[in-house]
Amino acid sequence: MKIVACVKYVPDTAIKIKITPDERGVELSDVSFIVNPYDEFAVEEALQIKEARGGEVIVVGAGTETATAGLRTCLAMGADSAVLLSDPVFDNADSYLIGKALASVCRELEPDLILFGKHAIGVDNGQVPSIVAQSLDLPQASVVTKLEILDQGFRAERDIEGAHEIVEGSLPAVITAQKGLNTPRYASLKGIMAAKKKKIDVRNLDSLGLSEEDKKPRLSVERITLPPSRPPGKILQGDVSQVVPELVKLLHEEAKVL
């Protein structure tokens, strides 16, 4: 099977947010980047499928040169090759443009399966995979915690409110990974060495054949703000027989949640 996993290189989850002076972005110059954690599940799943059934795993990322490091990490995990769609525009592009760009590469690669993360942390969005699926006219299953590849298709489990759904479909398909799907491996030293020799095909925006319509912004970020700070809380200390009734009174009379 030929499997593509799309990976985004994202700011670490632990970063402290600083808003840029123009209030339209988040200061990212000093922060460390990681492979989007959900995309690691996607890459791991791709590798496990390849190990079980044979084939190849290609990781694809859209970003700037910096994203190369993320792709190298995936190569070190065991992916066979990588494609970097390199253009500064990707760092702040709409999902639509990113989706169209990834779709364009996938169209050339003709994979049997395209794996994504359920969303990219930071933007917390969850749209790019659907744009790829729609552009390539493929079935999709999102937020998947269990995936079985069958001879003719796939069977996936996904979490919904208070239940999970079993989705069955044909291949090729687009699947997005949720925590629980697998446990991503660490790159071994051998893997890291081998990754240095693996090929990263760098593609520029112009080679992707996107239309002006694809590039048109659909959304504009007007402002980025910090969430409103919460007023200091009432912290009660003392004997349980006193503080508990006091808390209940506050919840009942002040917050009115009881």
């Binding site: 947010i17 988040v26 933007v123 917390d124 007007e222 402002r223 980025i224 703000t225 910090l226 969430p227």
Partner: peptide, 9 residues
């Protein structure tokens, strides 16, 4: 965005 650490308008 950023898991609620910032808001985007």
């Amino acid at each position: 965005i950023y898991a609620g650490k910032a808001y985007a308008v």
